[in-house]
Nucleic acid binder design. Structure first.
Lengths: 223, 223
DNA sequence: TGACTTTAGTCGCAAATAGTGACTAATTCG
DNA sequence: CGAATTAGTCACTATTTGCGACTAAAGTCA
């Protein structure tokens, strides 16, 4: 399967694969090749001719058998922190995977983000960067939609936002903003989930609209 | 001064140093070592023991004699695009320099961003990433303040925002938002700039304040 | 000097946006 | 049937924002 790189490998490509498992976010880790290293982010060494992004997709395909539904580079991490491969730097990516389609290959496992096994300092930094990037992209890219199945109820969507943002949202405000954004359309299906009124199913179907015509924001606090 | 790295150098650290020259943004380029390469982003190869960020500051110090006033990593750029050093990937940084204090050492020159000399495809991509990062950080970090001298008029500040955003802003709205953010305080000096009423000088002096209590935003358009 | 121009700085209305509680609707459970 | 539970909507209020119009203080020029 994966090979230990030569010590002179210039850098590795490390990928944080994120999914929503029940009420928690989870990331995929791979079992280390020796007993001393327990779990680590999936990674590979660069292959000649491929782009960095393509390599990160390859890592995901090795681990799950299919590409993530969205990826973004997090940057290069070095800073004298140790990496399992002993490479000098890691180029890190974050990728999103809907949980339905995500069965880890042998040697890989999902771990809830709140309860990760010990990782190297560099990999901890990478996971933290992935969390920050997901949160900051939330209002710029359809992250939450990508973590849900192709049809979903508005309550499920709101719960996904609440999970990603780490805070409760008000139902009426959430739906008003969603309507204004022209991002979803109703299907003609309804889902009855135990007790309570059945919910209508929606699908992600963004429509063109004018960009909000905003002025400046000074949303920062620190020098 | 700078040395040509060995061909096996694993990666380079490339830095986009940005300043405001008059009415335009400008970046610093260094003259290539051969006739065929004309101008390129300043860069160096990693030094053992230092962090990536420290290396990017070193690049700026080589070029200007002092550190940038703000830096941020842009990520790793590879993707089979050629780099002057022939390194496989570049770890790119953006740094801000106020124009007053920025005298390039021999071999370096400022170029307005609208009119850059030919660069390698990879370095063009890095410059574009720097522009995007500056724009997106504008409401999260005091970028514009850092490009101005330590005291400035509110009109100068607004002009800097307009330059960075590439659009006009409404004076009263700009000042109201600025007041609400508690970011500047007036000095007791005034500046008379030819005709027109003299303007009061301000300094950047952020004060603690509550974070805005916002709900969700769906500010995206594309899938 | 005094009208005119130019830049600085402020006010206040109107429109858009956002927070929130209370309401109606449709289902299960006992 | 009534209580509980979840979905979906309404309407009121408060806040934020766009924007035109205003006042203030300087220079220019006849």
């Amino acid at each position: 399967m994966r090979e230990r790189p030569s010590r002179t490998s210039p850098y590795t490509i490390d990928v944080v694969l994120v999914t929503a498992m029940g009420n928690e976010l989870a990331i995929l880790l791979s079992r280390g090749s020796t007993e001393r290293e327990r779990w680590a982010l999936p990674w590979r060494t660069p292959q000649s001719g491929g782009t960095l992004g393509a390599a990160s997709v390859g890592v995901a395909e090795d681990a799950l058998g299919e590409p993530p539904i969205w990826t973004e580079q997090l940057g290069a991490f070095g800073d004298a922190k140790r990496h399992p491969s002993e490479a000098e730097i890691s180029v890190a990516f974050v990728g999103l995977v809907p949980h339905q389609t995500a069965s880890p290959k042998p040697g890989y496992n999902w771990f809830p983000m709140r309860d990760l096994p010990p990782l190297s300092p560099r990999q901890r930094a990478i996971v933290e960067a992935a969390t920050r990037t997901i949160q900051s992209r939330l209002d710029q890219a359809p992250i939450a939609f990508r973590l849900l199945p192709s049809t979903f109820t508005l309550s499920e969507l709101q719960q996904m936002y609440e999970l990603l943002l780490g805070k409760r949202l008000h139902k009426a405000s959430f739906r008003r903003a969603l309507q204004a954004a022209w991002l979803v359309e109703p299907t003609d299906e309804w889902r009855s989930e135990g007790r309570g009124r059945p919910a209508q199913l929606y699908r992600y179907a963004p429509k063109k609209r004018r960009r909000p015509h905003r002025g400046v924001r000074f949303d920062f606090l620190y020098p």
